[in-house]
Amino acid sequence: MSKETGHSDHIPGTHVFTGQRSKRGLKLNRFAFSLNQASNREAYLQDAEAYMDNCGLSSWEKEKVLARDYKSLVEEGGGSIYMLLKLGSVTGEGLASLGAQQRGETKEEFMQTRNVALKENE
């Protein structure tokens, strides 16, 4: 078990959400959690940069959020997928879009691998 991640990470393509990762992503995840409030979603849409500054995000985190780089936020930034999904309410992306990006595919490519397409929150 790694001291850095709290897990052996032996499952390919998997970054188990350990306490250590949660600690690394605390500000990022708190920022995403704050989007549960409608007034915060509006504030973010008005001025994303200022909103993220208020949440104390690092320039790396801000850059990745604006680039919608969920892969980096999860794999390196300690992002919880359940928290990052809340960004979808302001970017108009559903879970399948976040997933496709993490797999390095377009949403269309990803959906071709699915049995049935369902409408999600987005």
Partner: peptide
């Protein structure tokens, strides 16, 4: 279900 990483889906 897996919702994160390259093993998403």
């Amino acid at each position: 279900h897996q919702l994160h990483g390259t093993r998403f889906g």
